[in-house]
Simulated scan of single mutants.
Amino acid sequence: MATYTLLEIWKPRPEWYALPNAHKRKFIGKIRETLGTLDQSGAKLLGLWRCRATSEGGWDVMAYWQFPSFQAIEELIDGNEKFGWNRYFDQKNMVGKSITAEEWCSASEIDTEL
């Protein structure tokens, strides 16, 4: 069965820094709740990396996820938008479907899409 990967990079927007600490704590509380429910969908957060000093563009954090379906990724992204993630953080995402090295080699030999 194929798995899907989500690679996120993000950095705070000026709106985050302007937010009072009490509101930041409440917002982070929502993130904790969301993370707690993602296990039920089969999502796994495989790691978080602080990367500000080493990334072009000042990206602050990178997250690496594994999901059982593309729909589960869409649900996470939709949920983030609903509670205002994009208001406070600039984010870029990359999504990929797992393939074997042989699948990639075979497709690349005949110039086809996977």
Score class of each variant (00 low, 15 high):
Thr5His: 15
Pro12Ala: 02
Phe83Cys: 00
Gly42Ser: 06
Trp49Phe: 09
Pro68Gln: 03
Leu48His: 08
Glu103Ser: 01
Arg13Gln: 00
Trp10Phe: 12
Glu8Leu: 12
Met62Lys: 05
Arg50Asn: 06
Met1Lys: 15
Lys11Met: 00
Leu38Gly: 04
Lys11Val: 01
Tyr64His: 10
Lys82Ile: 04
Gln66Gly: 03
Gly84Ile: 10
Met62Arg: 05
Pro68Leu: 00
Ala72Leu: 05
Trp10His: 14
Cys51Leu: 08
Glu103His: 03
Ser55Asp: 05
Pro14His: 05
Met1Glu: 05
Tyr88Ser: 01
Glu81Ser: 13
Trp16Glu: 00
Thr5Glu: 08
Cys105Thr: 15
Lys97Cys: 01
Phe67Arg: 12
Trp16Cys: 00
Tyr17Ile: 08
Gln66Ala: 09
Leu114Asp: 07
Gly57Val: 02
Trp85Asp: 02
Glu102Gly: 01
Lys30His: 11
Glu75Val: 00
Leu19Arg: 09
Glu56Arg: 10
Ala22Ser: 13
Phe27Trp: 10
Leu7Phe: 10
Asp60Leu: 05
Gly36Glu: 04
Phe89Asp: 04
Arg87Cys: 03
Pro20Val: 03
Thr3Leu: 05
Thr100Met: 08
Ala53Asn: 14
Lys82Arg: 15
Glu103Gln: 02
Arg13Lys: 07
Leu48Trp: 11
Glu103Gly: 01
Ala101Val: 15
Asn86Pro: 05
Glu56Ala: 08
Ala107Phe: 02
Lys82Tyr: 12
Phe67Leu: 03
Gly36Met: 01
Ala72Gly: 07
Met1Trp: 06
Phe89Leu: 06
Ala2Cys: 12
Ser98Trp: 12
Cys51Met: 10
Glu109Met: 11
